[in-house]
Design a protein around this nucleic acid. Structure first.
Length: 483
DNA sequence: TGAAATGTTGGGGCG
DNA sequence: ACGCCCCAACATTTC
C-alpha cells in the first residue's frame, strides 16, 4: 500500500481505540495514520461544551493521547475552525484521505458536511462511519418510511434487527507518518475550569477515558446488572451503570456495551431479564439520537407545537434556587447538589427535579436543559433534549403534562431511608427518615434534636406543591384552548 | 417511567 | 336478623 498516502483520522465523539470504525477503516486502507482532534467551540454555536464537559474532555484527550503513544502514534491537536485545521494538516502531511465517525446533532452534522465538501473540492477521499449508535437514524423507520414517534415500536424494530456487529479490537500499533505535524499542547486549549478547585468533586467521582469506561462497564455488570430493574430507581444505591459520560464522548461504544451485557446474560440467568431492561435504556439513547436527527429544531423548541404558547413564567430567583439546590424539597436539592459536585445526577432524580422546575415552578424547560448542559459531564444534545421534552410533556412519546410528580412522595418511595438526601444535603443528615423528605412536617423537637432551624439552615419549600399542581393544570388548560 | 379525586365493594359495629 | 353507616381497601377516572 505504498501509494495510499496518509489518512487523517478525525476524532470527535469517539475518543477510543477499540471498536473505532474510522480508525479500522484507515488501517485497512493502508499507509500512515495521523490521529487528529480539532477543538472548535466556534463550530458548535450555541451548544459548545459546558464547563463540566470541558473538564471531562481534557482528561479524555489526555487519555487518548497516551493510548496512541503506546502504539507508536500520537494525537495531533488543533484549534478550529475544523475545516481550516484539517486543511492545514492535509497540507503538512500530504494526507490523501480523511476518515471519521458521524455525529447526529445539528452542528455536528453541519461540520461533517463541510469537511466532506472540502474533501471533494480537494480530491481527498472522505469516509464517515457509524461509531456511536446501534443503528443509523435512516435505518429504523416505520412501514410508511417515517421515523418512529413512540419508543416501544421503535425499540421493537431496533431489537428486531438482532445483535449489532461484534466490536472491533483495538489496534496494537499504528503506522506513523515520516514527520509529525505540530500539535497544540492540551493545556493550551483552556478546557480546565477556572476556579480549579471547582473540579475537585468531579475528580473524585470519575476517571474519564477508554480505560475508565472499561472499568466502569465491568463493575456495573459484576455488581449491579442483576438487580438493575429495581436498583435503577434507588439513587442511594449503586444501581445504575453510570456509563452516560463515557458513551457521550465515545470512550465506549454502544455496541461494546450491548455485547458485554448480552454475554453476562448468557452466563447467568438472573442477569437475563435485567439485561433486557438495561438494553432497553440503551435503546432510548438511540431513540433520542434518531429523533434529533429527524427533528433538529427540538434542541430549543417543543416538538408538539401547541406548547409554543404555553404560559411559562420568568422567575429568576426560583430558577437560581433550583440550580443551587435550595428549593426546600430535599430529594430535588440532593439531586441538584449531586449534579453540581459530581457533574452527574441519578436519572430518577433528574425526572423529579425537572418536574419541579417545569410543572411546579412553570419555568421553561429550555432553562433547565441549559443548566444541565453546562453542569453535566454527560451533557448530550440528543439525550438532554429528549429528557427535558419528555418531562415537559411536549416531546415525542413524552409523559403527559398532567403527570406531575409529588417530590415528597417520590422521595419517600425511591429514597426510603433518606440516605441519598443525607449524602447530598448534609444539613438534614441528622433528621430521622420519617421526616427527611418533608422537614416542615417534623415536630419542633425533632428539628431541634437534629440541629436544624428552618429558614436558617434549610429553606422551606419554594412552592406549595398542592397549589402549584393546580396552577400547572390550569396553565395546561390555557394552552389547549389557545392553540 | 403519576397523583389526586372519585367510585365501588365488603366487612364490621351498632341500633 | 336486618338495615344502616362508616371506612378501609381497592379500582376507575380524571387531570
Amino acid at each position: 500500500m505504498t501509494a495510499a498516502g496518509a489518512t487523517l483520522v478525525w476524532f470527535r465523539h469517539d475518543l477510543r481505540l477499540a471498536d473505532q470504525p474510522a480508525l479500522r477503516g484507515a488501517i485497512e486502507r493502508g499507509g500512515p495514520i495521523v490521529p487528529v482532534y480539532v477543538h472548535a467551540p466556534e463550530d458548535e454555536g450555541h451548544w459548545a461544551p459546558g464547563g463540566a464537559s470541558r473538564w471531562w474532555l481534557l482528561k479524555s484527550l489526555r487519555s487518548l493521547s497516551e493510548a496512541l503513544e503506546q502504539r507508536s502514534s500520537r494525537l495531533i491537536v488543533q484549534h478550529g475552525p475544523t475545516v481550516e485545521a484539517l486543511a492545514h494538516l492535509v497540507e503538512q502531511t500530504g494526507a490523501t484521505a480523511v476518515y471519521w465517525c458521524r455525529r447526529y446533532e445539528p452542528e455536528g452534522r453541519r461540520i461533517g458536511e463541510q469537511v466532506k465538501q472540502f474533501c471533494a473540492a480537494h480530491g481527498l477521499e472522505a469516509q464517515s462511519f457509524n461509531g456511536s449508535l446501534l443503528a443509523e437514524p435512516w435505518e429504523v423507520l416505520t412501514k410508511q418510511r417515517q421515523p418512529y414517534q413512540v419508543f416501544t415500536p421503535f425499540w421493537r424494530a431496533l431489537e428486531g434487527r438482532g445483535d449489532p456487529p461484534e466490536p472491533l479490537a483495538a489496534p496494537r500499533k499504528l503506522l506513523a507518518p515520516d514527520r509529525w505535524p505540530r500539535s497544540v499542547p492540551l493545556d493550551e486549549l483552556k478546557l480546565e475550569p477556572r476556579p480549579v478547585d471547582w473540579a475537585g468533586g468531579l475528580r473524585e467521582a470519575w476517571t474519564p477515558g477508554e480505560q475508565g469506561a472499561a472499568t466502569q462497564l465491568k463493575r456495573f455488570v459484576a455488581r449491579a446488572l442483576t438487580d438493575y430493574e429495581t436498583g435503577r430507581d434507588l439513587p442511594a444505591t449503586e444501581g445504575v451503570s453510570r456509563l452516560s459520560p463515557f458513551l457521550h464522548f465515545g470512550e465506549v461504544s454502544p455496541r461494546q456495551v450491548w455485547h458485554a451485557i448480552r454475554s453476562a446474560a448468557q452466563k447467568n440467568s438472573p442477569a437475563r431479564e435485567a439485561s433486557g431492561a438495561y438494553l432497553r435504556q440503551l435503546g432510548w439513547r438511540d431513540f433520542a439520537h434518531h429523533l434529533l436527527f429527524h427533528a433538529p429544531q427540538t434542541v430549543d423548541r417543543p416538538l408538539r407545537e401547541s406548547f409554543e404558547h404555553f404560559p411559562w413564567r420568568d422567575d429568576a430567583p426560583a430558577l437560581r434556587a433550583w440550580e443551587r439546590g435550595r428549593t426546600g424539597f430535599p430529594i430535588v436539592d440532593a439531586g441538584m447538589r449531586q449534579l453540581w459536585h459530581t457533574g452527574w445526577m441519578h436519572n430518577r432524580v433528574r425526572m423529579i427535579a425537572a418536574s419541579l422546575l417545569v410543572k411546579d415552578l412553570l419555568i421553561p424547560w429550555q432553562y433547565g436543559s441549559r443548566w444541565f448542559w453546562d453542569t453535566l459531564v454527560d451533557a448530550d444534545l440528543a439525550n438532554n433534549t429528549l429528557g427535558w421534552q419528555w418531562v415537559a410533556g411536549c416531546g415525542a412519546d413524552a409523559a403527559p403534562f398532567f403527570r406531575i410528580f409529588n417530590p415528597t412522595s417520590q422521595g419517600r418511595r425511591f429514597d426510603p431511608e433518606g440516605d441519598y438526601v443525607r449524602r447530598w444535603v448534609p444539613e438534614l443528615a441528622r433528621l430521622p427518615g420519617e421526616w427527611i423528605h418533608a422537614p416542615t412536617e417534623a415536630p419542633p423537637e425533632a428539628l431541634r434534636a437534629a440541629g436544624i432551624e428552618l429558614d436558617r439552615d434549610y429553606p422551606r419549600p419554594i412552592v406549595d406543591h398542592a397549589q402549584a399542581r393546580q396552577r400547572a393544570l390550569a396553565a395546561l388548560k390555557q394552552t389547549k384552548t389557545r392553540r
